[in-house]
Amino acid sequence: MKAELKECLGYIFFKNPVLVLGLVLGHLAAGDINLQNAAALSVTFLFITVPVMLFAATVGKKIPSGFNVVFYALVSAAMLFPAYYICKSFSATIFDSAGIYPALLAVSTVPIVYSSKIAEKQGVAKALFGGVCITLGFALTAAVLGAAREFLSSGSLWGFKITEAAYPAANLPFWGFILLGFMAAILNWVKDIIRKSGEKSEEESA
């Protein structure tokens, strides 16, 4: 259990799909401009990643290597429908207001490449676990970024006004890239601190 928890924390923080592996950056930089968009993107990511990775771990490995991508893309596309309905149950507009970015998750690197390179070689349980953990890492990054950008650009959170807008340009794509860059740097800093404290405790125990 402790190992699984450590692995999950690894996917969320130390192997974060966005901030460390550099995947699905564009969706967050340009599409994740508020908490509602972050929710729509996270739900879509979950509904795409987990089923595709399960498919890859069960059926995908039996498909010839040139054609597995086609099946993964079609499965991802099919999973857009349940994602849409789930998002609509929160709010009528959050899927639509996120523009083309939730739909683009269907052909992003995680379902297409991750499934063929990694999930095919794993068992069902590990693929499911990996899919959920990656989604958690993506969702946490999207939530922090979306909340920060919404608060800065319009002074609100989830559409509820809290204060005046401090920095209206925060919802533009270039600020998305810059804020993601700083988030990745902060994560590197935290990793460095943990590594140094780990080394220190090893030296002390030695």
Partner: peptide
């Protein structure tokens, strides 16, 4: 292939 880079 692209997509899952080694940590850059």
């Amino acid at each position: 292939a692209p997509g899952i880079p080694e940590e850059t």
